[in-house]
């Protein structure tokens, strides 16, 4: 993975999921690709980490204890002073209301479970392939 200045930087990823198995296997796979992966098990923990440093990508589960994925996104977007990461929201089921909300958030990507490692890789590649924001 090269640091091409023409391309957007997609290297640090904050992975948020309450399922430790998913975090573990996905972290391992993405680390091998050269991403710097940091893990959090719920929204509050993720916000804490986001307060400490910047991430290029936030990949979060939707249904989580304490703070769900949507609330995490809203908290992040409301902090306009900070550098905004790409957001990938992963959910088991998207009811109409959630889908409408996601449609209104133009900069939030959406993936429906089950998501394979290959699909995550492709999503990250597509982010890297986008023009500067």
């Amino acid at each position: 993975m090269s640091d091409d200045p023409q391309r957007p930087r997609v290297s640090s990823i904050l992975l948020v999921d309450d399922q430790p198995h998913i975090v573990r296997v996905l972290s391992r796979a993405l680390s091998r690709e050269g991403y710097q992966v940091t893990a959090a098990s719920h929204g509050e923990q993720a916000l804490g980490l986001l307060g400490e440093r910047d991430f290029d990508v936030l990949m979060t589960d939707y249904q989580m204890p304490r703070m769900d994925g949507r609330k995490l996104c809203q908290a992040l977007r409301s902090d306009t002073a900070r550098r905004q990461p790409y957001i990938i929201l992963v959910t088991a089921v998207a009811d109409e209301e959630l889908r409408d909300w996601v449609d209104q958030q133009s900069d939030i990507r959406y993936m429906e479970k089950p998501v394979s490692i290959r699909q995550v890789r492709a999503m990250l590649d597509s982010l890297r392939g986008e023009g500067a924001r």
Binding site: Q19, H21, I22, V25, L26, R28, A29, Q63, A92, V93, K113, P114, V115, S116, I117, R118
Partner: peptide, 18 residues
């Protein structure tokens, strides 16, 4: 139910893939 089914499926899929 979707969540309860899809979560283990995702875990299984990812581990199989790994």
């Amino acid at each position: 139910v979707a969540h309860e089914l899809k979560n283990p499926l995702q875990i299984i899929a990812m581990h199989a893939e790994s």
